[in-house]
Amino acid sequence: MSRHRGKLMFLGGLIAALAVGWLGLPIVLYETIDQPLQFSHATHTGDLLGMDCEACHTFDEAGRFCGVPGIALCATCHEEALGDSPAEQHLVEAFIHPNLEIPWLVYARQPDNVFFPHAAHTVLAEISCERCHGPHGHSDRLRPYQRNRISGYSRDIWGSNIAGIASAPWDGMKMGDCSRCHRQRGIVESCQDCHK
């Protein structure tokens, strides 16, 4: 026993250090914030309504992606509550009636110096939304938003894995993730293709 004490201690220390790094660090590094409103994509996109992404996430006349729609678009259907879900009740009372925009926390918001033309990817390269955003459009509820306490960026940029190793194609939106796909598609890159 005493012969292996050093090794056991090393192993124990290693496991403890890994636990701190893999489990403890994300808790310290990211703060978790709930979305201001629970929204079910599945309700809108599923069999019931069958809307597609572009119905709400539109481009403007200059081809610029408009991101999350404003409260006016919600109001076209939800002027008054259609169902009896508490989330819808909250939407109508807290945002539509007082005509306030919902302060959404955008999971995929990139740093300011990134220029991402949605049109080039969805229109020209015909890449589906799911390729980068995952099955978000079919989710039943909005998961909590995790913000990096140091950089202030969404955790989705780095990916769910603390090591930055993607488990799915949409897990992680780092520069390397963009670049990998570009290289696979033989796109010659320079810095200013994506940076502004």
């Binding site: 610029r64 033309p117 049109a119 020209l124 200013q192």
Partner: peptide, 12 residues
């Protein structure tokens, strides 16, 4: 140029 490219992309 990026904005111009984006507009062009939206138009295909």
């Amino acid at each position: 140029r990026q904005v111009a490219l984006q507009r062009a992309a939206a138009e295909g």
